[in-house]
Every structure is written in structure tokens, then in C-alpha cells.
């Protein structure tokens, strides 16, 4: 049976050289829910989200201590297979970053790397994931055209489809709509509500209303520390911590 919480994080400390970016972070990420991470720039929320699929491994000066349990296993354990981890924990970035390839090739890129060669199965993945991100009807007649010809919002949905194509459990989103217009933003938000029937979503956002609209749980980061984490309703209606209240009401600083 699957555990109720996808991630359970305890005493997470992260240093970039002499600078400590995360201090004693502890949080659980419930399965098939949307968890929003909010906080001012430089507070550690992007650093934190990157610890969840070990993206920080790429930074040489980065040092991580503590427990990051994913489906009951510590992903910072030496035995952890990072490639397998990133297959289960996908990521979508702030700016849409499709490969300079066709729409089709973008989606099948991951599955192919993971060894899928069967054309029918790849076709099936393309159709299913593009439908999951509500892009199928818009691109089904141009699957073999360059992805760079799509609009910004379409590109971002394609990037989400690309992340879904390898069958992840979790999708990490680092400010996925900050480069999009309000209509494209709404489409992504609606999409996320649907996706959490099958996936767990962790989103970093600077848009308070977005966190309030779409997430089930919200964590407020400040100076590398989680100040408060609770249901989104509680955080935005009646936060327990004064610092949280100051931040979400815009009186921060």
C-alpha cells in the first residue's frame, strides 16, 4: 500500500559553501494534493523544491544534511538511484523550456531515454499526456512541427506533458506561470487541480492569490526556515504566525 505522505522531511539543513540556505526544515508533502511554497525571494523555497529530486547535486558547493524520505526511502542515501528518483519526481520550470524539436519528440524524449522504443506505445503516451494537459486538441495536427512555434502557455503545458510522459508520482513546479499571461496562467491552474487526481504537486509561487486559489497546503519560508505550514485555508484566513500574516497581507519587511 502507498504511504499517505509522498515526502516526509526532517531536520533538513542545506549549505552552499559557507552559506546555509535551509535550516532545520521539516515538512510532509501529502499524496495527490497540491502543496504551495511561498516566501520572499532568497528565502530558500526554490532550493528546497530542488532537494526533492536532488537537482542541487549539480551545484558543487552544495551540502545536504537531514532526512528526505520519498515513499519511505531516504533519497540522500548512497544507495538511491538518482535517475530513477527524477523519473518519479519530475520538474517544470519558470520559463517554458521545450527542446528545439517537434512537439512529438518533446513528449517522447523522456520515455525514449528510459528505453521505450515501441512506436504504438510512444504514440499512446503522446496522446494521453497531451490530453492530460489539455493541449491535444490544439496540437494534434502539428505534432511534427517545432515546439518553439507554440505560444508561451502552450509551451508550458507541453513541458508539463513532457514531465508526465515518464510516469512520475510527483511534479515539482518552480513558478510555472510567472512568465505567462493571466489566461494561460488560469489554464495551467485548472490543469493542476485536475492533475492532482493522479499526481502530487509541489509548487513554488510568488503569486499569493495563486497559492490561495489552487493549493491544499501552504508552507511559508523565511530566511531558510519554514515559519508556518498548514492548510491553505488556515494560512490565508487566520495564520498562526505574525510573520506569515505580515507576508501574505503585504506588510512585510
Amino acid at each position: 500500500m502507498q504511504k499517505e505522505n509522498v515526502f516526509e522531511i526532517e531536520n533538513l539543513n542545506l549549505h552552499y559553501g559557507a552559506f546555509q540556505a535551509l535550516i532545520d526544515v521539516g515538512i510532509i508533502i501529502p499524496r495527490q494534493r497540491i502543496t504551495a511554497l511561498i516566501g520572499p525571494s532568497g528565502c530558500g523555497k526554490s532550493t528546497f523544491i530542488r532537494t526533492l529530486n536532488r537537482m542541487n547535486d549539480l551545484i558543487p558547493s552544495c551540502r545536504v544534511e537531514g532526512k528526505v524520505m520519498f515513499d519511505g526511502e531516504d533519497i540522500y542515501d548512497k544507495a538511491c538511484d538518482v535517475i530513477a528518483l527524477r523519473k518519479k519526481v519530475g520538474m517544470v520550470f519558470q520559463r517554458p523550456n521545450p527542446f528545439p524539436k517537434t512537439v512529438y519528440e518533446n513528449v517522447v524524449y523522456g520515455p525514449k531515454i528510459h528505453g521505450e522504443k515501441n512506436k504504438d506505445r510512444l504514440d499512446e503516451i503522446v496522446e494521453r499526456t497531451l490530453k492530460e494537459v489539455a493541449l491535444w486538441d490544439e496540437v494534434k495536427n502539428r505534432l511534427n512541427k517545432s515546439a518553439l512555434g507554440l505560444s508561451g502557455g502552450q509551451q508550458q503545458r507541453l513541458c508539463i506533458a513532457r514531465a508526465l510522459a515518464v510516469g512520475p508520482e510527483v511534479v515539482l513546479m518552480d513558478e510555472p506561470t510567472s512568465a505567462l499571461d493571466p489566461i494561460a496562467t488560469l489554464k495551467i491552474e485548472e490543469l493542476m487541480s485536475g492533475l492532482c487526481e493522479n499526481y502530487t504537486i509541489v509548487i513554488v509561487t510568488h503569486n499569493m492569490q495563486q497559492a490561495a486559489r489552487i493549493s491544499d497546503f501552504t508552507a511559508f519560508f523565511l530566511n531558510g526556515v519554514i515559519v508556518e505550514t498548514d492548510t491553505t485555508e488556515k494560512i490565508f484566513a487566520n495564520p498562526a504566525n505574525t510573520k506569515t500574516e505580515e507576508y501574505i497581507t503585504g506588510r512585510f519587511g
Binding site: 492569490q209 484566513a237 506569515t244 500574516e245 497581507t249
Partner: peptide
């Protein structure tokens, strides 16, 4: 102003 928390209440 789209108030939240104490302002909203």
C-alpha cells in the same frame, strides 16, 4: 486590494 487574513476578516 484583495485582502487576506486579518485584513479580510
Amino acid at each position: 486590494q484583495q485582502p487576506v487574513a486579518g485584513d479580510l476578516r
